[in-house]
């Protein structure tokens, strides 16, 4: 009797589960699945020309666009740039974030003003990236700009330096902006991860006489594994679709040294001769690269139990 009642209840309400998730699912079909399949399809066509929506499927040579993208030196360059820029920002970023996390969660050094520091460190993250990039373009302006002004007046340089005319400085500026916008975010995530670890483990370690360093490397880090994976993957996906900063800082220049893959795709499909087909092929290749590296990270960081 009880059992049938239970069954009946479950049965009669289950439909609301489907009903209430229907809008989300429909929006997924319309605004995600359909555009994705459409992009895949376009990769095998000759679609191009602003506002032209007619196209033909390349029946004789379906992989033509993919081949031509893979052969294009600019595409290879953009992939290399994207990785370089991501590494140049991610390594210092995760290092500083971990250091700050170790400091802020240390039980021996009670750091005051953590709330204030968190608010200020995270702040650049919510400011429009486009505005930040244009601001840094002005800050590093030549011949007159705040950074050059400071360098010259402090006697570090005898004359102003044209940062945006040289590949290495421009890359470092892009990487610095990314680092500066994201280390606060990463730190907050890591701190909250540490606070989620059972405090008894730390107490036991302290009683056993473990040093701060030992506690950090032997207890904190291993317990942060899942969160580190999450941070690494989200940063990789975000980093490999990097667009706003290099685009607005110096439009990928000088000499395409800060041209990222997303900018490459944009330039193929939404500028010049509007080669949607080639852009679509390039975005599929980029997607495979991202999926491949995310897979590797998940594999390396998996729980080895």
């Amino acid at each position: 009797m009880d059992n049938t009642l239970q069954k009946k209840r479950t049965f009669s309400y289950a439909k609301y589960g489907y009903l209430f998730s229907l809008p989300f699912f429909l929006a997924f079909l319309i605004f995600n699945l359909y555009p994705t399949l459409y992009t895949i399809l376009l990769g095998f066509t000759d679609s191009k020309g602003l506002g032209n929506i007619t196209f033909h499927i390349l029946k004789d040579d379906p992989w033509k666009n993919f081949r031509s993208i893979l052969k294009a030196p600019t595409f290879a360059l953009s992939i290399r740039n994207t990785f370089t820029l991501w590494m140049m920002n991610f390594i210092p970023q995760i290092t500083l974030a971990m250091l700050l996390t170790a400091w802020f969660t240390s039980r021996r050094n009670q750091i005051r003003g953590q709330g204030f520091f968190k608010v200020v460190f995270y702040m650049p993250n919510i400011i429009t990236a486009a505005s930040v990039a244009v601001l840094f373009n002005s800050l590093f302006g030549y011949p007159k700009g705040p950074v050059n002004d400071l360098l010259v007046s402090m006697g570090l340089r005898s004359e102003a330096f044209y940062f945006m005319n040289f590949a290495k400085p421009t890359r470092w500026i892009v990487a610095f902006i990314q680092f500066w916008m994201w280390y606060g975010y990463t730190m907050i995530i890591l701190v909250s991860g540490v606070l989620g670890i059972n405090p008894e483990i730390f107490e036991a370690a302290e009683i056993d006489g473990a040093s701060d360093r030992q506690i950090f490397f032997r207890i904190t880090l291993p317990n942060l594994r899942t969160i580190l994976t999450y941070t690494l993957v989200t940063s990789l996906i975000g980093g490999l679709s990097m667009y706003d900063i290099p685009k607005m800082l110096n439009n990928g220049n000088p000499n395409n040294s800060t041209l990222t893959s997303t900018m490459f795709i944009f330039n193929q499909a939404f500028a010049g001769s509007y080669m949607y087909a080639k852009g679509a092929a390039a975005s599929m290749i980029l997607f495979l690269i991202i999926a491949f590296f995310s897979g590797i990270i998940f594999f390396l960081m998996r729980d080895r139990k």
């Binding site: 605004f31 994705t36 992009t39 376009l42 667009y243 795709i265 975005s283 980029l286 991202i290």
Partner: peptide, 11 residues
């Protein structure tokens, strides 16, 4: 990532 769907989305 969103970039994957952008061209199809535009069309």
């Amino acid at each position: 990532p969103g970039i994957v769907t952008s061209i199809g989305m535009y069309q």
